[in-house]
Amino acid sequence: MSTMEKSPAQARSGKRPVWMERPNPLVQLAKALALGVSVLLVVIPFWSVIATSLADQKTINDSGGGMVLWPGSVSFDAYQAILSGGVVTRAVAISVGITVVGTALSLAATAGLAYWLSRRGAFGARPMLMLVLGAILFSPGLIPSYLMVKQLGLLDSWWSLILPVMVNAFNVVVMRAFFQGLPRELFDSAAVEGASSATTLVKIVLPLSKAVLAVVGLFYAVGYWNAFFNAMLYIQSTDKWPMSLVLRTYVVNQTTIGGEQVGAGAEAMPPQLPLQMAILVVALVPILVVYPFLQRHFAKGVMTGAVKG
């Protein structure tokens, strides 16, 4: 700390400021170590998941029944078990469809609503905002939601997985805050040029809001991708199940019950732990694929809600 205190004086006396000094190699080393350890703390569990998903029962037994760091003899049995029969592959396709369509609709609806609420003096914006905020506080219960979906005739339809969750009030608030942060002059000049509200939204607001769109879009996409509960309630034929619900029958059921599942004379399932870890990997891959493309927007986007209301 003492060097820090000296530094302004040094800077004033014509020397280079402290942040331009060559760093102390010891400090450098310590930083590298700290960062390395942090990275390892993140990477090792991840690696362990992958390694365990490739391990066989013997390796797992030898390690005391838990996760392994090295799979020993690599076996793809777990992945084979998941992907055979075509149930999971079909469900993945369904999930991709729901995620893409759902995210697109969600973004359109959320942006539209947020734009309305962000314009000062827009007709009815005030009561609507109260409604949106109210939706954050109060959520309908399980049975009312179900009855609503049933009355709309959406049971056993993929729309039941999209429409009830299409607009998330929190995301609306985040997006509204971002829109409000755009310079007013832009809106004014657009108005002077004779642009309608819709043109302003499409031509001016949205192109300037890529960051928040990326973040909110990712929130929605992850939500659609992981949602199983609504599918469990609303989708009756297993052929229409999304991936997360199908995978749930692999993970949850097998852990809760020892004996009931297999019945007389079933051949060995792949050992449970690798199966669960393989499922984790399968469920993670799409998000991992999408994330790097959104990452550059991410930091700016998540900050939006942090400093503005």
């Binding site: 399980l142 469990m232 949850v252 809760t256």
Partner: peptide, 20 residues
């Protein structure tokens, strides 16, 4: 209709409530 065993109670409740 197949329901993951862990979720049966909720599915049952909604099925009865929806008279389905």
């Amino acid at each position: 209709q197949m329901v993951p065993a862990a979720d049966y109670e909720q599915k049952f409740a909604t099925t009865i409530a929806g008279n389905e």
